[in-house]
Design a protein around this nucleic acid. Structure first.
Length: 299
DNA sequence: CCCCAGGCACATT
DNA sequence: AATGTGCATGGG
């Protein structure tokens, strides 16, 4: 299957998009990327002007283009974001990076597991969970595992989840099972969260789900629930904001971030408000660009 | 041994 | 409302 990306509005850098840290389970084999969408293994390769997709079983073209958010007009989003010369440079350096439209359940569990951890660790935990509780899917020489659904997680023993390498052991295992129960019982309904406004959806997520605070909620809202104004702030994004916009921010906040203090709720909200005020409805794209920019700039 | 990583929940002031 | 602290893995 071929998907054309041969126009400025459909620009994509597939490798950058799949490896920048918004999603954790894609694997690179040479020029190809292998992952799963639902129960289907997907092998995808970027060619000149189009994407070449090989699914393990029949799949709609729109499943891929929805996942990659090819419906986002990247050219106009970037021009709307590039209000200052600092950010224009950032946007240029990460051109082709798209926000993905992930499955909300997988995204929620992934970011519950991400707390105070690092990307390589998160990858390992999630892959362990999929190997243990997911289903094996193959395409030729390639093997992958589906992400286990709420029912599989509900039936899992906490000790088995802990054995996957959770950062906070039993406590996090309970959080994951709690989320599974909420989804299974229909108390947490992602289709509803997609429709209601960002502030309400965020309150709903943080109040219902144990282990979900401001940062995790913003990640889930941005990466899987259509809230492009969500602006997740981790230490890296805080550093990027402070580097670029220190003149507009509270001096003590700048000092705290620079001296590597943990980000307080108050500082999170302050940075959050500033970001949405500055970047508007596509603040989430700005966040992802800043995140990647500050990390690659320093490494 | 130290430090830190896509933080949260709860106690204390 | 703001700040402090336990959690408790694994890599540099």
């Amino acid at each position: 299957m071929k998907i054309s990306v041969d126009s400025p509005s459909k620009t994509i850098d597939l490798a950058l998009t799949l490896s920048c840290g918004q999603v954790f389970r894609w694997l690179q084999y040479g020029h190809s990327w292998v992952g799963t969408l639902g129960n289907t293994l997907i092998k995808i390769r970027q060619r000149k002007g189009y994407l070449e997709v090989q699914p393990s079983n029949p799949i709609l073209r729109s499943t891929i283009s929805d996942y990659l958010r090819l419906d986002d007009d990247l050219e106009s989003i970037i021009s709307e974001l590039s209000g200052d010369t600092f950010f224009r440079q950032v946007a240029y350096e990460v051109r082709g990076l798209r926000i993905l439209r992930q499955d909300p359940w997988e995204c929620l569990i992934s970011y519950i597991c991400s707390r105070n951890s690092r990307i390589s660790m998160i990858r390992r935990v999630l892959n362990n969970m999929c190997r243990r509780f997911g289903e094996k899917v193959t395409l030729g020489q390639y093997t992958n595992y589906t992400f286990p659904g709420p029912e599989e997680i509900l039936n899992a023993k906490p000790s088995e989840l802990i054995g996957c390498g959770l950062r906070y052991g039993r406590r996090q295992a309970e959080e994951i099972k709690n989320a599974a129960e909420l989804v299974h019982k229909g108390i947490l309904d992602f289709n509803v969260l997609k429709k209601i406004p960002y502030p309400e959806a965020k309150i709903e997520l943080t109040s219902l789900c144990r282990g979900v605070g401001s940062k995790v909620a913003d990640c889930v809202l941005l990466f899987s629930l259509e809230k492009l104004e969500a602006f997740p702030i981790d230490v890296w994004v805080a550093r990027a904001m402070v580097n670029l916009y220190h003149d507009y921010l509270d001096k003590r906040l700048v000092k705290r971030v620079r001296s590597n203090h943990r980000l307080s709720n108050a500082d999170y909200e302050r940075l959050s408000m500033f970001a949405r005020d500055r970047f508007g409805r596509y603040a989430g794209y700005a966040q992802e660009y800043l995140y990647h920019w500050i990390r690659t700039k320093n490494c």
